[in-house]
Simulated scan of single mutants.
Amino acid sequence: MKFGFSANAFREYDAGEAIEIVADAGYNGIELLFDEPHLYPPDASEDDIEEIRQALDANDLAIGNCNAFMLTAIEGFHHPSYIEPDTDYRQKRIDYTKAALRTAAELDHDYISIEPGGPIPEEKSREWAVETFVESLEAVLPIAEEVGVDLHVEPEPDLLIETSEEFLEFAERIDHPRIRCNFDAGHLFSVGENPVAAFDRLAEYVDHVHLEDIPENRRHEHTQLGDGALPIGEFLSALDSRGYDGFVTVELYPYEETAAETAREAMAYLEDGGWV
């Protein structure tokens, strides 16, 4: 397997600086942030995209993932979502995702990660939310097909799809080959799942993995590797034994103030464990 680090911890740096730091820390790849202040697809020019290409080439760094989950350029991590009751507001997320697919294609990357619907509105049922998420993605999928880029839905605590079973139900409901899973081990651990068992359940849908530690009480709080209770060694051993050869991206966005140091410390943890 290959290891990357997510640029969403580097919001106090520009994208080029983040790429250089992640490469210097010893990672194979970087998860690009498709949001301000890095590469925001609706506003990204050809020159912006070329600058990213050149920075990646200069630092011999691959793209591990294109993160199209966070959307602080409009409001925040989760809003606008794919299941906003306000259709105009929901359309902003749909249009953003179309732009993200096109930008990933221009960077010759095969997938983007997206939020799993969003928070279910208080006045709406789960059934309404699932149906609305399906309708939103059906508006996006023609672009995914056109440019050849997959949509990796990422289960997350407190959003529409939290668990591996909920992802499988959704995948069966939408039934489209471009719908895949962005497997976040910490998220699934936070909702009470065993990450190894969850990976085995979802493996046929997984091309990219997020990794962070999680506190002992399983609160959804991205924590430096080795500082929490997630069985990281057991999980990585399982990936290795199953022949997983994709990217494992360390995602520690709460560490913005110490992003460079945090990336280096996470790599040191992986090196000490014999994973790199």
Results as ranks from 00 to 15, higher is better:
Pro231His: 08
Glu165His: 05
Arg53Ala: 10
Arg93Ile: 02
Gly228Ala: 10
His38Arg: 05
Gly186Phe: 07
Leu225Met: 04
Leu239Pro: 01
Tyr205Gln: 02
Gly233Ile: 01
Leu236Tyr: 03
His38Trp: 13
Leu56Val: 10
Trp275Leu: 00
Leu56Asn: 06
Ile30Lys: 07
Asn59Leu: 09
Val250Met: 00
Leu252Ser: 03
Gln224Ser: 11
Ala44Trp: 03
Ile21Ser: 07
Arg90Asp: 02
Thr163Cys: 03
Glu138Ala: 04
Asn67Trp: 10
Tyr253Asp: 09
Ser6Tyr: 03
Asp95Glu: 14
Ser241Gln: 14
Leu230His: 09
Asp108Asn: 05
Asn182Val: 01
Glu165Asp: 12
Asn217Glu: 04
Glu122Met: 13
His152Leu: 12
Glu145Asn: 11
Asn28Lys: 06
Leu160His: 14
Ile74Arg: 07
Ala62Glu: 13
Gly246Pro: 00
Thr103Phe: 10
Val191Thr: 14
Thr223Trp: 09
Ile114Met: 15
Ala263Ile: 04
Leu225His: 05
Pro155Ala: 02
Ala229Asn: 05
Gly246Lys: 02
Tyr269Ile: 04
Gly4Cys: 06
Glu169Tyr: 07
Leu107Phe: 05
Asp110Ala: 08
Ala9Pro: 11
His208Gly: 13
Asn8Met: 09
Gly246Cys: 02
Ala268Glu: 06
Val140Tyr: 05
Asp14Trp: 15
Asp150Leu: 13
Ser164Asn: 07
Glu138Asn: 12
Glu84Ile: 07
Trp275Ala: 01
Asp35Leu: 11
Tyr111Trp: 05
Lys98Val: 15
Asp200Tyr: 11
